[in-house]
Design a binder for these strands. Structure first.
Lengths: 338, 338
DNA sequence: CTGAAAGCGCTTACAG
DNA sequence: CTGAAAGCGCTTACAG
């Protein structure tokens, strides 16, 4: 095994001190330009790379961010929420662009949770995606706060003022979805998705839905809301419950695309056509949405922008800059399901 | 800002030396049990976490793995191959299970490529997923080899003997796909996917296809193969080319699910029904596959197992153990498109 | 512009 | 069983 070159090896070869090598490699103007270039050339030749452990230890920062994905406990082992996967992609890109590495971790419910990345100096800041169980989650957030960790969470506005939340405007998204259905002439709109405080994002969407109905002068009917988590199966089940309830409806607002796909399957199973008999709108615009049958009208969350803002925000937090929560606007993507 | 506790703080509080603290925290039997427990209790109380930079520097390893995703250059910016995304999930899980952290990086074509993770001591080993341009890729592999990096790649068996490849048995998968179509009575089977050396995995699938035809005594017709990369659009275009070619066919073997979905769209656009007029089989079993219309029959690659084997393999490499390339078997998932 | 020196926070031989 | 000391490979004040 070829042993790795160190700054001392370079110093020896260049006939200068190790400090000078270190300065030269960081391109310090303190070092004579010529010397600097000579040293850099030797470094390249020896295939030298700064030892991050040493430099991080010395500098007391790690130039890496940690991304913690907390999955819904109900999800099956192999399936990751496709929306989070998109976020993962954009966060990876955004942090690379800022010169940060990204440590990714899927939080098992049981485990030590936030894996103490920042505590162990492996990361300078943390991005949290998804809450498993929301109550558990709250406890853990409290601990992060207490330890002065730099972190930002994705999701619905948090009532604790010192938690920095970045999220899409779920309320506005809910309004848009329902207004779109109303514009298509639907009046009896069912909502499929958990609207309790366990799913703050879904709840905001539901509240937006109600607001849009109210504005249109339509009385809402709480019997038209059926709880579901964000899986196809759960959407299927909830839609069957809706069908069995005897309520009459001509449109469904599903709190997520996965739910919408389950809903369509349930409707088809009863011989109902989408959108002819029932219009269905989803939420997220996950990749599957455009391949669904029929292609799904949905509320798009701009994951690219979201990733960038998330990364920017932690970075600001790390640098002690002022940051405030941000709501990212959503937009309706009209396809064939409505 | 609360400053982080160090082992010296604990030593002070416990009235022992720092070395003893270090030993106690690593649960060394050298330290008196009672002292050990006392120290551990204090550590917990102070919310102490070992500084990874310091310990990694000292131990000369990082307990982290790097995952490098090299995307097809043709992919649009926001879209990540869903198959890789599944792999990402399973690799993350597998490495967490082994006590390793995972650094994830999407390789831009332009950039410094492998980001020199191992060189800079940020990772003990590297997992490579996907080749952008295959020729470029080869050059980079050579460099990794030369630098004695511990790495393993996902894909088709590599001709360079010292490159450790883990992959699904693409040849067998190709045989299975075609045998499935044959068993349904199809005789004129088109293959959509690049079968050149630029896409070694697709080529192996194609070779399997040919082998199955031969075994069944059917002459293959090279005019029935149309190149496509793994995107829906590319599959759509290639299928149109097939349709325009005037060749008659009753089944399509698509080299990936994304291609298959594009193929179905192209067939539908010409008024052809799947599977009534043309049967279509895909490859990968990405999440979208089961939501496609009709749900896609496909060759499933076991990503969970693949992730585990990948991680196990780099780990063995790191520990200097013997490792050999592995082919993971595939299986046919029958749905409604055939 | 350059070098000698301190120190980041650990782990672990060495000595007792 | 415990402590004093060296050293992992850097960065950066300090002195010249």
């Amino acid at each position: 095994m070829v042993t790795k070159a160190t700054s001392i090896d370079i110093a020896y070869k260049a006939g200068v001190s190790q400090s000078t090598v270190s300065r030269a490699l960081r391109d310090s103007p303190l070092v004579n330009l010529e010397t600097r270039q000579r040293i850099q050339a030797i470094a390249k030749e020896l295939n030298y790379k700064v030892d991050k452990n040493a430099s991080n230890l010395r500098m007391q920062n790690s130039q890496t961010l940690a991304l913690l994905l907390c999955e819904d406990p109900t999800n099956d082992d192999s399936l990751i929420n496709p929306f989070f996967l998109s976020m993962l992609g954009s966060i990876t890109r955004a942090s690379a662009q800022k010169g940060y590495d990204l440590l990714v971790s899927f939080q098992q419910l049981s485990s030590d949770w936030h894996a103490d990345y920042e505590d162990s100096n492996k990361a300078d800041g943390i991005i949290l995606l998804g809450y498993g169980d929301f109550v558990d989650y709250e406890r853990k957030l409290a601990k992060l706060l207490e330890q002065n960790t730099h972190f930002v969470i994705w999701g619905a506005e948090h009532n604790h003022k010192s938690v920095l939340t970045i999220g899409c405007d779920n309320h506005q998204g809910g309004v848009s979805a329902t207004e779109h259905l109303l514009s298509k002439g639907h009046k009896n709109i069912a909502f499929i998705g958990d609207s309790s405080s366990h799913s703050p994002e879904f709840r905001d969407r539901y509240l937006g839905h109600l607001a849009a109905l109210k504005k249109a002068g339509i009385k809402d009917n709480s019997a038209m809301q059926f709880a579901a988590i964000s899986t196809e199966t759960s959407g299927f089940d909830a839609t069957n419950a809706l069908l069995n309830s005897g309520e009459s409806f001509d449109a469904i607002f599903a709190a997520s695309d996965l739910i919408a796909i389950g809903a369509i399957r349930a409707l088809n199973a009863r011989g109902l056509k989408v959108p002819a008999d029932v219009a269905v709108i989803g939420y997220d615009d996950i990749p599957v949405a455009s391949f669904a049958n029929p292609p799904l009208t949905t509320i798009k969350q701009n994951t690219k922008l979201a990733g960038e803002i998330l990364v920017d925000s932690v970075l600001k937090l790390i640098n002690g800059e002022q940051v405030s929560p941000q709501l990212i606007p959503t937009n309706v993507v009209i396809r064939q399901s409505t």
